[in-house]
Design a protein around this nucleic acid. Structure first.
Lengths: 237, 237
DNA sequence: CATATTAAATGAACGCTGTTAATTAAATGC
DNA sequence: GCATTTAATTAACAGCGTTCATTTAATATG
């Protein structure tokens, strides 16, 4: 008797359209400009109608978050598939992360610093599958980074004891600290030479992977089988 | 003829009262609960009246931010004045920072991750002196940490080349990365053993101050004059 | 003391926000 | 064509930061 419902693919298209607009607004006008009414206007519909596709604004945040992870993952994947020494790959990943974080500060904020909904908030709810996509994408990121780090470790006998997963988290938290403090403009206040400092910080992130930098991370003993490591720069200053 | 104006100390008391309420609301109910009307209600006045004491909400954020820095500075000062080995002091500072960040997540957010107004936003405005207090408190924090680090370096010949200011920033960004990712609950998603990981991360922050860990931190990056850095990995792939 | 003058506080309003409910418009099967 | 279901809209609510006109309160002077 009645009007027939649209194909699932059509309703998905509308959802996608909304998300495209939302992400675009987020990237161009920043976090604060993201309102339901603005998204609706740019999508040629009413704010209320968005609630036929998303249960609330948080769900849109979740989707944007996922897109952010996908964007970063894409950059990472390009680097990962290139043929180059593992250490250079790590360096490239670091650079990509920093660039992404500074370039898309608003998006980065949603992903990592804002109290936007996370996967754990949706377990047991109808949206758990959607949230699982977000978590999965993020984990792919970590796995990819861990793989590159693992590659390096396996080709470097002096790094044999390192745990790729831990090294990944360590690198990640350090990178995030730099990006987040920069984007909140606190770093600029505390250090006038913040640009040079950031470069140096980035370079120092490779320190765990330097010559013979392995063992104290491994377990306890670290009495120097490599005493000549720091002899070179005695002329500094 | 007219009604006489209140003593500056009286109007300052009202301002203080407002800030007390605002900080209390922030600490107890979180960032989102901080509205002008709520602050006003808890201060037995109207929202509009707050604008006789603060020009806008941002100015309240700025003040709360300052209070946050003062709170953290107080914790740091207690540790700094204690008599103990420099390395233990650094360890205690690290612990204090982490505790503060996790304990007062909302306040920490205003100080370091939110896009709340910073000193640079007020140069040339009537509020520059107020903002200068904020910046000054933050710089005292950094100076205090740098002093402790400097103490350590001066008592340890093997660390002679380290720059206390840079070490401070490095430590700070790393700590912030941990706190921020934890508070945004992303770390918990990516690493199920996040508690143990955080402990390990905190411990590893002392790595630059380990035995003979000095020199490559001392000056520039050395990629151009050091072609043998990644020679060992020529067998990769 | 009464009054004019000023200070402090208020009430009301504006435009915005996220969200819900009632209503309308549109499309389809019988 | 009609009944029925879907999709979209309009209207409204409560709250937000902020501004402005108004009221309340206090005081120095005639």
């Amino acid at each position: 008797m009645p009007r027939t419902a649209r194909q699932p693919v059509e309703v998905a298209a509308v959802k996608q359209k909304i998300l495209d607009v939302a992400l675009d607004l987020m990237l161009t006008e920043g976090f604060t400009a993201l309102s339901m009414r603005k998204v609706a206007a740019h999508s040629s519909m009413t704010a209320a109608n968005i609630y036929n596709y998303f249960s609330n604004k948080d769900e849109i945040y979740l989707a944007i978050q996922t897109r952010g992870f996908e964007m970063l993952l894409e950059r990472f994947a390009v680097i990962a598939q290139e043929v180059m020494p593992p250490l250079s790959k790590i360096k490239a990943l670091i650079r990509a992360y920093l660039d992404f974080g500074l370039q898309h500060a608003g998006l980065y904020e949603i992903m990592f610093t804002r109290n936007t909904p996370k996967f754990a908030d949706y377990v047991g709810t109808p949206l758990e599958p959607t949230a699982a996509v977000e978590k999965n994408t993020a984990l792919q990121l970590a796995a990819l980074a861990a793989q590159v780090i693992s590659d390096l470790i396996s080709t470097r006998p002096d790094l044999k004891g390192l745990d790729p997963a831990y090294q990944t988290v360590q690198l990640w938290t350090a990178l995030h600290g730099i990006v987040s403090l920069y984007n909140s403009r606190v770093l600029q206040e505390a250090d006038e030479q913040y640009t040079a400092t950031m470069e140096r910080l980035a370079a120092d992130l490779l320190r765990p992977f330097e010559d013979g930098a392995s063992d104290s991370r491994r377990k306890k003993n670290r009495n120097s089988k490599d005493p000549n490591a720091n002899r070179r720069s005695s002329n500094a200053e």
